[in-house]
């Protein structure tokens, strides 16, 4: 393939200098994102390992502590995130087909859903604070399981907090993509950034799909 670089509407350079052609650049970016997600899997994996270890050690305490989480809010948030994955996919489709207006619309919708998720999460955190379920000196948990329950809530805050941090970064990326779309950057020959942002967003949703049953539903089947 000869490196005749196709120009986008306002003729910005699609191909970075280190690549031979746009196709190579696209493949490299894709691989880069997947490798990054592999790192992320191991990053969350360390916490999932700690969770598994303590849950095996303290099954009853984890069930009891899990029952103090608000499963309704958790379920609502799960639905919100799954919907946001849907709108994200529509935004990516808009970008790929060069329909920048549609892309902006769905990006904003995705950001809105992400914000709803974070709002609900924040409300839940607040509830836990009021109920003295935030680990530390103020932690109160009736019954024989106080210590392991505190570990459960430590894990709960660490895992959902890390997930929320990823959501916030995701919303930042979505904002960036929306700005690109406003400048009509996306076209059938240039859409890698929005596609990779979509991949990241789906990944963050997927983490929640694991977190929700592990944290909220442990106690329900007992």
């Amino acid at each position: 393939m000869n490196s005749a670089v196709p120009a986008a509407p306002d003729a910005f350079e699609v191909r970075a200098h280190q690549f031979e052609d746009v196709e190579q650049q696209h493949h490299a970016s894709w691989l880069g994102m997947w490798v990054f997600l592999a790192t992320e899997v191991m990053f969350f994996g360390g916490m999932f390992a700690a969770y598994a270890f303590y849950r095996v050690g303290f099954p009853n305490a984890f069930a009891a502590a899990s029952n103090r989480l608000d499963v309704t809010l958790g379920a609502i948030n799960t639905a919100v995130l799954i919907s946001s994955s849907f709108t994200m996919a529509l935004a990516v489709h808009g970008g790929e087909t060069g329909r920048n207006k549609a892309a902006i619309r769905y990006l904003l919708l995705t950001m809105l859903l992400g914000a709803v998720f974070l709002g609900v999460k924040f409300y839940e955190y607040h509830e836990k604070f009021v109920e003295h379920l935030v680990p530390g000196p103020a932690f109160r948990f009736e019954g024989p399981h106080a210590h392991p329950a505190e570990i459960f809530f430590s894990l709960y805050f660490a895992m959902t907090g890390l997930h929320a941090l990823h959501m916030i970064i995701g919303i930042g990326l979505l904002t960036w993509m929306a700005l690109k779309a406003r400048r009509k950057r996306f076209s059938p020959i240039y859409y890698t950034p929005i596609e990779l942002t979509g991949l990241y967003w789906h990944f963050v949703d997927l983490i929640w799909i694991f977190l929700f049953p592990l944290l909220y539903l442990v106690g329900r089947h007992l």
Binding site: G136, H147, S154, L155
Partner: peptide, 11 residues
């Protein structure tokens, strides 16, 4: 934050 992940006194 004074958590107890690795503190044997707190499980």
């Amino acid at each position: 934050f004074n958590l107890g992940f690795f503190d044997p006194a707190r499980g």
